[in-house]
């Protein structure tokens, strides 16, 4: 009886594989009873004759994300299959990927998960379109090359003090880009004093930006894309009012971020920068309304408490959002 049962199970296994291989709706019968229905697809080129344990690149498949965000890892999972289209459940194949397009890289060796699957990870830095060719033992797998669309990624600021410094770095990138444009294309009627002040501020913001990038080193976020289409760089009012907005915002941002820092060294550096931002703000405001109270106006310094503003990162990023194209993911910022 046992022998007969084992024979029956072997026959069932064969029929099941046959069913997959032929991609037909197949009724399995054993001892006159219908016990299973299999509807399984596989490659058209499959002749169904390969040994079950032999990897077939042409039959192996990959799960590739159609879209990822720049700066985020794209994770590709390759499933090795045999020529019958069945999953291989052991490792040992050589799988690699080559990225072409906007984020050319590779060949990137896959991680062998030991169970017939392989994991390939790459992190595109640039928005655009990538073509990812995947080979298994040197032969292209089914569906290769794959197309991955890279969206402008939400840039994660990271966590802890690094996130706070990246937050500052993002703002300094915005300010530096603005003043570089201001100095490159000065507004009509700009005075010598205004040129001197705006050039100084340009230099300071570039230094803040480059300094923070160097201090953050490998932890630094990538370059952000900015959009100043709302600014009329030929107009004194437009330029100086935008400058005022950025400087006041920078002051409020650093004031609010100080408490998020754990390191006294980082806090000191933030303090060294914020007072210079406040100096800028006062100078810009005085250009807009000379010898008035506006350099430390009641709109930014509470006339009851004598305190400048302190903004949360959410407030600041919301205010900066119209000027920053690259989405910023601040979720790793400390909250206290």
């Amino acid at each position: 009886m046992i022998d007969r049962l084992n024979h029956g199970l072997r026959e069932l296994d064969f029929l099941a594989r046959l069913a997959k291989a032929t991609s037909r709706r197949t009724f399995l019968h054993w001892s006159g009873v219908t016990i299973a229905v299999a509807t399984v697809g596989c490659g058209d080129d499959d002749d169904g004759t390969g040994p079950s344990g032999t990897v077939s690149a042409a039959d192996s498949t990959a799960t590739v994300p159609a879209m990822v965000s720049a700066g985020s890892a794209a994770t590709i999972t390759v499933q090795a299959k045999n020529s019958a289209g069945s999953n291989i459940t052991t490792g040992g194949a050589t799988v690699s990927a080559t990225v072409m397009g906007d984020n050319a890289a590779g060949p990137i060796a896959a991680t062998d998960n030991g169970n017939g699957t392989y994991t390939i990870t790459y992190t595109p830095a640039n928005a655009g379109t990538d073509t990812v060719a995947i080979t298994l033992n040197g032969t292209a797998i089914s569906g290769s090359p794959f197309t991955v669309t890279v969206a402008a990624g939400a840039v994660s600021l990271g966590t802890g003090d690094i996130a706070v410094l990246n937050y500052a770095y993002a703002l300094e990138q915005l300010e530096a880009a603005f003043y570089v444009q201001v100095v490159t294309t000065p507004y009509s009627g700009i005075t010598a004093e205004e040129t001197a002040i705006l050039t100084d501020i340009r230099d300071h913001e570039v230094i803040h930006r480059d300094f923070l990038k160097a201090a953050l080193a490998a932890g630094a976020i990538p370059d952000l894309s900015v959009d100043f289409t709302a600014v009329d760089f030929t107009s004194r009012d437009s330029v100086l009012q935008t400058a005022r907005t950025f400087e006041d915002l920078g002051v409020a941002a650093y004031n609010g971020a100080g408490q998020l820092l754990e390191s006294a060294d980082y806090l000191l550096v933030a303090g060294k920068i914020v007072s210079v931002e406040a100096r800028h703000a006062a100078a810009i405001r005085d250009l807009l309304n000379p010898l008035s109270a506006d350099f430390a106006g009641d709109d930014v310094v509470d006339p009851t408490s004598g305190l400048d503003r302190a903004f949360t990162p959410t407030q600041v990023l919301t205010a900066a959002d119209p000027f920053v194209v690259t989405p910023i993911d601040p979720s790793g910022l400390p909250t206290a």
Partner: peptide, 14 residues
């Protein structure tokens, strides 16, 4: 303290 600090810096600049 930081909020006062920034106000002093505005004053200083002016």
């Amino acid at each position: 303290a930081l909020q006062i600090h920034a106000v002093e810096a505005r004053h200083a600049s002016m």
